[in-house]
């Protein structure tokens, strides 16, 4: 009996560890989480921004290969994909009213925004200036791509990006290129959504 108990314990522990590895693999191509710093300019390659008082901010152009998604996703819910962030930090020297724009596609991209910071869903603008050295508290933004069937056969399903703009001056502060593709290698995502 003791042997059965020990085996049950070890097997469950190993399954749990494996589930983490599986999640890590899939997090590069499903509900990809990424960090945003402003101002950071045009993100053309992976960078890590280190600022005193802030966690290391890793940014990169996002390339998401829909073919690398999990088997359940591919079979049961293939026509939607999402990207997500919980982290927008002001690394500049002045307070900024942050406005977000996602380059549009020929199909709907739905925004789901929650934050403990005043936000206008019509203009996608955080209406209160974000002080330097601070991140938007309790932030959750999901962009959900509702991809029609006929686009799913394309090699490139989305080729655009996220623009982070100073809402007062209309100056482009950060641009993160985003691509959804079929076939290739996912890059740039995979941040842990648990913080």
């Amino acid at each position: 009996m003791k042997k059965t108990i020990l085996i049950s314990f070890v097997i469950t522990m190993l399954i749990t560890l494996f589930s983490s590895v599986y999640a890590k693999d899939l997090s590069k191509s499903e509900i990809v989480h990424f960090w945003i710093a402003v101002p950071a300019g045009n993100i053309t390659e992976p960078i890590t921004i280190i600022k005193a008082g802030l966690p290391p901010i890793k940014m990169a152009p996002l390339v998401i290969d829909l073919d690398q998604r999990g088997i359940f996703k591919k079979i049961l819910n293939p026509n939607t994909e999402a990207i997500s962030t919980h982290w927008i930090y002001n690394i500049g020297k002045k307070p900024i009213r942050i406005k977000l724009e996602l380059i549009e596609a020929n199909y709907p991209i739905r925004w789901e925004v929650k934050a403990a910071w005043p936000y206008d869903p019509e203009t996608h603008t955080f209406t209160k200036p974000l002080p330097p050295g601070m991140g938007i508290p309790k932030l959750s933004i999901d962009w959900i791509f509702e991809i029609p069937n006929y686009y799913m056969d394309e090699k490139v399903i989305y080729d655009g990006g996220l623009l982070v703009i100073d809402a007062d001056t209309n100056e482009l502060l950060t641009f993160i290129p985003i691509k959804l593709i079929r076939g290739g290698i996912s890059q740039g995502g995979g941040a842990s959504c648990c913080g």
Binding site: S8, F9, T12, M13, T16, S20, A23, K24, G190, S192
Partner: peptide, 23 residues
């Protein structure tokens, strides 16, 4: 066994294995 695995993942991330494991 699950709880131990759950905590081990967190410790592995702390030890720098975040490229292989995620919470």
């Amino acid at each position: 066994g699950f709880l131990t695995g759950f905590i081990m993942i967190s410790i592995l991330i702390l030890l720098g294995f975040s490229e292989r494991f995620t919470a």
